[in-house]
Design a protein around this nucleic acid. Structure first.
Lengths: 194, 194
DNA sequence: CGTCTATTTGAATGTACTCAAAAGCGGTGG
DNA sequence: CCACCGCTTTTGAGTACATTCAAATAGACG
């Protein structure tokens, strides 16, 4: 028996659903396990679902010309992950998405989302608010990227994702911050010796 | 007689309105001039409107502890500008917004937007798509901030805003890229001599 | 246990910044 | 209309931040 509490609570933060609407929504979701290191989506593939994480950790990243990974976003419990651009425009994805831990998600396909938005238009509002909040959070990150030093960005990261430091490797964190793992190691040493 | 073509065409890209709906929408807009260097919003103030730019150029920026400006976003014709966080949560704004050129906008207030979303729920969809697109564009910028050199970011800027280079000062561009004006001057020289 | 990857450390290098001074440019007022 | 003022851009020298390369150590996983 699957537990839909987390996702229903998340929806309920922004819109109110009656029992039938809840059941209809749930009927459109597909439960999936993603094992650590498995991919949800690769560059050039078509991202066919948006994914609500109930457990675990996903990352969205790019590879540069030297094969170095750059992490655009982490996704943890109670968050959505995916490539909205690819998903919504049916175009090849610009990103890789894989699992840093064994992860469980509820997926909604494009067809089902369209069905949902038509049947219960309130969900337009839900997704509007979701994107709005994500947009605001990204604006903050952009500000930090252009105005903070690497050290300040690292300290901010610890604030924003207090639980994540113990769960993922330092290399992942450095990749999210836009610095090398070597330099992050030096920063941590510098911070700890004062 | 005000010209609503640009904003109606923008809305029409995403949702279809009949004549009455158009008229109702237009009735909620307030036309405003912002003279070059005037502020639409300051840090700590309450951002009371979202602004659709019909002419001119706005910038959203922060000031760091040394008084240096960091530009989060430019807004030009056919774009919305504002601080959605402050606007939607009635909290003090984190940003300054001012005009780099004499600018004309259509403003919608929070009350009118709420009225609009209730009366014509299709607008939830319009704003959902707007934020979604903005989110995708920001993701791309974040990727560039963490994986590109300053020179690559500058060349990307020229692609993304082809018209803007002649309209605004180099200092504004450097501030958007996250580098100093001095360094941008050096980059341009380096680029032009090859 | 062995292998593979992550982390640390150190040295050398490159990228971007600070400070300072000079040159350029735009707007304003006499 | 020109002179002046303030701000932007350029240039140069010195410095700090962050990277690369390499080697050693530590951890994780089969």
């Amino acid at each position: 028996m699957l537990n839909y509490d987390l996702i229903l609570k998340n929806v309920n933060k922004h819109i109110q659903l009656n029992k039938e609407e809840k059941e209809f929504f749930i009927s459109l979701l597909h439960h999936k396990f993603i094992k650590r290191k498995d991919f949800l989506c690769r560059l050039g593939e078509y991202s066919k679902s948006e994914n609500f994480i109930i457990k675990g950790c996903l990352r969205t990243y790019t590879l540069d010309e030297n094969g170095v990974e750059h992490i655009i976003a982490f996704g943890i419990e109670d968050w959505w992950a995916g490539d909205p651009y690819s998903f919504l425009t049916n175009s090849p994805s610009n990103y890789y998405i894989d699992a840093l831990e064994d992860t469980e998600v509820f997926q909604i396909s494009k067809e089902n989302l369209e069905n949902l938005l038509e049947t219960i238009p309130k969900f337009e509002r839900y997704y509007r608010i979701l994107f709005q909040n994500a947009y605001v959070a990204q604006q903050k990150r952009i500000n930090q990227n252009i105005s903070f030093s690497a050290e300040q960005r690292y300290l901010e990261f610890l604030q924003k994702f207090p639980s994540l430091e113990q769960r993922i490797s330092q290399k992942q964190i450095s990749s999210y911050l836009g610095i090398t793992p070597v330099f992050l190691s030096m920063l941590k040493k510098k911070i700890s010796t004062r």
